[in-house]
Amino acid sequence: MEKFQTLHSAAVPLPLENIDTDQIIPARFLKATTREGFGENLFRDWRFNADGTPKPDFVLNDACYAGQILLAGKNFGCGSSREHAAWALYDAGFRVVISSYFADIFRGNALNTGLLPLQLTDAELARIFTLAEKDGDTEFVVNLPEQTLHLPATGESFHFDIDAYKKECLINGYDDIDYLLSQKPAIEAYESGRAWTW
């Protein structure tokens, strides 16, 4: 996993709630057996017409907005457990998704992919949307060690929470699997001490 520490970027505002994983990456594109290339079909049916031409009114096709931060309404990533949703966002160049809350499985998948799910309050999210929508060049600074989202243009800073262990993993590029493998002796001891083995 790539390390994540700080990011300076503009944001792409997608002001819809309950964006589900079927929108992020429709099921018909889950047939690949590798992790790469899903970005091409990110938000496929919102982004493209059936004939493959871009839909001009979708924000990812709007030249006014670009960046490595996606802004989205509450309950982002609800639905399926497909990690392909996080891979698609990452593959398309996003490194941070900001929302007022994330679906649990998506949050975990994002963290395991190196994509930061950054949770703000509803009011803070509304404020960020206002600024990002007004001027697509508005710069945001995500500082993971400090757990802040900073706006150089206005001087505003917002704190965000993240599990201390997952923060360390992201900063250092560690996967859970590395830690779990280091715990094999404890896992084997647990197994031998169990009363039930079904």
């Binding site: 457990s81 990690e83 499985i105 975990g108 998948n109 395991n112 992919t113 779990l180 493998l181 715990q183």
Partner: peptide, 13 residues
């Protein structure tokens, strides 16, 4: 339900 990174974790540990 779990994501694919977790599928690998369970496979390995």
């Amino acid at each position: 339900g779990i994501g694919t990174s977790q599928v690998a974790q369970v496979m390995a540990t």
